[in-house]
């Protein structure tokens, strides 16, 4: 094996195979980069394979991902802009918007706090059961929202574990706003933690340790050292958490009881309007949540860009 020809005329430095997408204008790509370095022989680099693969993937993506998005807006504006805006006039829909925003305003900060706490103990310390804890943090991702809703019913519902106690003290959690908030907390618990844990593990604890030797308190370290280092991941986790809270359907539809104007969040209101054969209104309301989703994805793209730019200026390896 040692006698293999090692002197093929290729650059020893593994030059980037793709022109750096963050530095090149995506519209101007195609011209630079690929032509500079001597061509590497790589699988699927033939012009025919390349074209067919890109074309097939683009067509399927157009059908599978773009068409549903386009359909939402096409249906919402089917009867014109006036019908679209009129869809938001109903007091039930306005209440649903308010309830959804309220839920997000409560759930997102709580899960940011949980995410920071979980990431702090998991990333900065080694302890027995740490892997189990990571698995536990991510558990809600693997569990159907329907299971989450049913489980909460068995805790706080009339026949649940705490049912008799809650009834005796006249505390209403199921089929009321607290139930919606609890179910949303369950479903979105991992979002911030999952973004922070790998990043904080990768960054290590040197900076925090230095801060300790300089006499900084734990809170000060968190505020001035750790959080600034992970702010993009934190923002992205929070944005995803927010989108998911606002759009949660399965868990919320079990614990809310679907009471019009009282426990209907936006996704439940969409279902209600759709079952009422009011498709235009259903899709109009859906455009709000689609907007939230699209803003979240744009935020992700921007944050990834900033993160990569920061890593570059910090001189860290790009992996």
């Amino acid at each position: 094996m040692a006698s293999e020809p090692t002197s093929t005329p290729q650059p020893q430095v593994p030059a980037p195979l793709l022109p750096d997408p963050l530095l090149t204008d995506p519209l101007a790509s195609g011209a630079p980069g690929a032509n500079h370095a001597p061509r590497r022989i790589r699988v699927g680099d033939g012009p025919a394979t390349r074209r067919v693969m890109i074309a097939v993937v683009l067509v399927v993506t157009l059908l599978a991902l773009v068409a549903p998005l386009a359909a939402i807006f096409a249906e919402a504006f089917r009867q014109g802009i006036a019908a679209y805006t009129a869809s938001f006039a109903s007091s039930d829909t306005q209440y649903a918007i308010w309830l959804t925003v309220l839920t997000a305003l409560i759930v997102v900060p709580i899960n940011i706090g949980f995410g920071i706490a979980a990431a702090w103990c998991i990333a900065k310390f080694a302890f027995p059961g740490r892997n189990l804890l990571v698995a536990l943090v991510e558990l809600p991702f693997s569990i159907s929202p329907i299971i989450a809703g049913v489980s909460y019913l068995f805790v706080y519902g009339a026949q649940g574990l705490l049912g008799p106690f809650l009834e005796a003290h006249d505390i209403k959690i199921m089929f009321a706003v607290p139930g919606i908030i609890l179910a949303s907390l369950f479903v979105t618990a991992p979002f911030v933690a999952r973004e922070l844990i790998p990043l904080m593990i990768a960054q290590g604890s040197e900076e925090e340790e230095a801060a300790v030797t300089l006499g900084a308190s734990g809170w000060r370290i968190l505020r001035l050292v750790t959080l600034p280092n992970v702010r993009f991941a934190l923002l992205y986790g929070a944005a995803l958490c927010n989108a998911r809270v606002m759009g949660e359907f399965g868990a919320v539809s079990i614990v809310s009881g679907n009471i019009r104007g009282q426990t209907n969040t936006l996704p439940l209101q969409i279902e209600l309007l759709y079952q009422d054969n009011n498709a235009v209104a259903a899709f109009a309301v859906a455009t709000i949540l689609t907007g939230v989703a699209l803003v979240t994805l744009v935020a992700k793209a921007i944050i990834e860009r900033l993160d990569a730019a920061r890593e570059r200026t910090a001189g860290r390896p790009g992996h």
Binding site: M246, P267, A293
Partner: peptide
């Protein structure tokens, strides 16, 4: 592959995670 719109395609992949299931 590098091609125009690759970053947009990359962003589109996450649509099903961000879009509410009822929508």
């Amino acid at each position: 592959y590098e091609f125009p719109g690759r970053r947009l395609l990359d962003a589109l992949v996450d649509v099903p995670f961000a879009l509410p299931t009822a929508v």
